[in-house]
Structure formats: structure tokens, C-alpha cells
Amino acid sequence: MSRNTGYLKLYGVGLKVGMANIMAYRGDFFINFFIMLMAELFAPIITFLIYRSGAAFPGWTLEEVMMIQGVFLLSKGIGYVFFFGLVDNTLFMVREGTFDLLLIKPRPVLFMSLVSGINVGDLGSIFSGLGVFILAATYLSGTTLMQWLLFLALFVMSLTVMLAFSIIMGSTVIKWVGNGRVYEIFEAISSFGLYPKSIYGKAFANIISFIIPLSIIGFIPAAVLLGRPVTGIWISVIVSILFLILSTRIWKMMMKYYTSAGG
């Protein structure tokens, strides 16, 4: 068997185990599903209220802003289910001392932690993202196949950034185990990606496009679908890839710290 199918298969088994794990507490699953579903709808509801009161983000219709937020929330939802478990899982295991047990498996520790962190319990957040996205998509008109394809490619980049964020957060909890607050920092930073880039000053807009790739999470893919002009797409794509590379470097650094300090 080739190495790669080995990894794919392992991911599949990890997904199955994740499901089984969730089903062990079915009641909790449904409660959690609705909590996540509702919690993620917070930003779109606020946006809706803003528009209803007559205010607006200049140059953007409500449907367009909803598209940005739908893409953002969908990406974050997928992140919650498939990537962010890495953070909780790493934190939990380092605290408990069971992180050691990942090191005796013949696989990369990052991959192992990602697989054992799959969190089907957060599925609700994917649904809320998908709901807002589909709703906004019904207002699209004249979108070409080319636009959809470019959107898909950019959405993969959006997920790449989500993965990179979770790896960076996971890395920090290896060393700073008391650091349960990383999420809040992430939530605060990433929420800049919820709104049209044009509402920010030019310097700040550049930071969230080209330094910390936040625009690519929601704004850039949505703008392509909406047929709005976006500058520097390719730079943002490259920055996103670099961001992922950077995150794995940070992970390696923290692992090095862990294996020499001993938990």
C-alpha cells in the first residue's frame, strides 16, 4: 500500500471514530448542534438589523454582505469540525500527559493530533454557514462557471488559512498549557474577515489581505462570486500558502521544545 493511501485511510478511520465518539453522547450532540447553529448566526443577524435600520456598509447591498458572511461562516464551520479540534485535543493531551502517546505512533504528530481532534459535534456551525451562503446565493445573477471555479479554488485557500490558524493555536498550547484563551484571540482577529474590505482604511485593508490573510477567508472568494473587482488576489493566495508553511514551522519549533522539555 502506498504511503498516501495509508494516510487517507487513517483519516477515514479517524472520522469514523469521531462519529462514534459523538454518538456516545447523542443528547449532547443535538444540543451542541443547535448551540453552534445559533451562535454562528450572530453576525448575520446583527448585519441584517443594521441594514433594516437604514444604515449600510457603503457600496454593499445586504445580500452581498450576507454572501461574504456565508462564505466566512462556512469556512469557519468546516474549520471547527475538521481543524480546530487540534487545538482542544493538543491542549487536553499535553495537560493530561497523553500527548506522549502520539509520539510513539509512526505518523507525524501534527497529523495524529488533527485526526484525533476531528469534532463532529460542531457540525451545526457548518450548517449555519451553509444556510447563509445558500440564502445569499439565491440573489446571485449571471454568475459564470469561471467565477464558480475561481470561487472554489479560493475557498480551498480560505480553508488553508483556517488550517494554518488552528496549527498556530495548537502550537501555542503545547508550550503555554494554561492558554485556554487562544480561541478568543482568534475569534477577535478573524472577525475582521466578516465585512467588506472597503469599510477599513487602506493600510488596515492591506494588512488583512497581504500580511495576516483574513480577507481570503470570506471577502475575496465572495467578491469573486459577486463579480466585484478585487485587487491582489494572487498575492493573497501566495500569502495564504506561506501562512500555512509558517504555521507548520511554528508547530515543529514547539514540538522541539516539547521533546526536550518533556511536557
Binding site: 495509508g6 487513517l10 478511520v13 479517524g14 469514523k16 471514530v17 505512533k105 509512526p106 505518523r107 495524529m112
Partner: peptide
């Protein structure tokens, strides 16, 4: 299920 996981890991 854990055994199955190890089967895939190894």
C-alpha cells in the same frame, strides 16, 4: 474501535 485506529496507524 481503538484497535481499528491502530490498524490504520500502523
Amino acid at each position: 474501535d481503538s484497535f481499528q485506529m491502530n490498524k490504520a496507524i500502523y
